[in-house]
């Protein structure tokens, strides 16, 4: 396990450990279906033991939770999930083969957490799948199903960036928020070939 890139302060590390314990205790209680005090205390013991034996890699969480943003993100995500599920289902029964495309989308906030969450959300919405991710530049290469033409492709690319913006509005820091709100200068220009 590499501890090379761990510029976390003591407080940040403590906070990420406490978050991990809370998450594990929640899973424990849900598995037992029992939220009694005794069960929870035992869950805390088990969670602490697990984290001592298998420490999690440090995750830097610089932002803060914005409840309105979280609700908006979740609602839009569910809506996308339903719409896109039926689109892919339709594609499955329609005659003819769908044409696809692999799109490179450069995220504006290339932090690990942001990249992971955007990739998860993009993958869960049917019709898009992460084919490759570039850690250094924060670029996601997304395989899109049923892309009709160049204009459709650009709409999908804009959709991914909008998703990122919604995510940042839900959990990002103020600085990250400025990044996604401002028009970007170093935008990658793709000429239609």
């Amino acid at each position: 396990m590499s501890r090379l890139q761990a510029p976390l302060t003591r407080r940040e590390r403590l906070r990420s450990r406490i978050t991990a314990v809370i998450g594990l205790v929640l899973v424990w209680d849900l598995l037992w279906g029992d939220f009694s005090l005794l069960n929870t205390v035992f869950g805390v013991l088990v969670a602490t033991a697990i984290l001592v034996v298998f420490p999690l890699p440090p995750v830097k969480f610089g932002g803060r939770l914005r409840p309105v943003g979280v609700v908006r993100f979740a609602a839009r995500f569910l809506f996308d999930l339903v719409v896109a599920s039926f689109q892919v289902a339709l594609l499955a029964f329609r005659p003819g083969r769908p044409t696809n495309a692999i799109v490179a989308v450069r995220l504006r906030v290339p932090s690990d957490l942001n990249m992971t969450l955007v990739a998860e959300a993009v993958s869960l919405v049917p019709g898009s799948l992460i084919a490759e991710a570039d850690h250094q530049t924060g670029t996601l290469y997304i395989h899109m199903l049923g892309v009709r033409d160049e204009a459709h492709l650009e709409r999908l690319r804009a959709g991914v960036l909008l998703l990122e913006a919604r995510l940042i509005r839900a959990i990002g820091s103020d600085e990250e928020l400025r990044k996604v709100s401002a028009p970007r200068a170093g935008d990658r220009e793709e000429s239609p070939s």
């Binding site: 769908p98 696809n100 692999i102 490179a104 290469y141 160049e150």
Partner: peptide
């Protein structure tokens, strides 16, 4: 079947 492949050059 791909109308665009932006991964290949990278």
């Amino acid at each position: 079947l791909l109308i665009a492949d932006e991964l290949a050059p990278d």
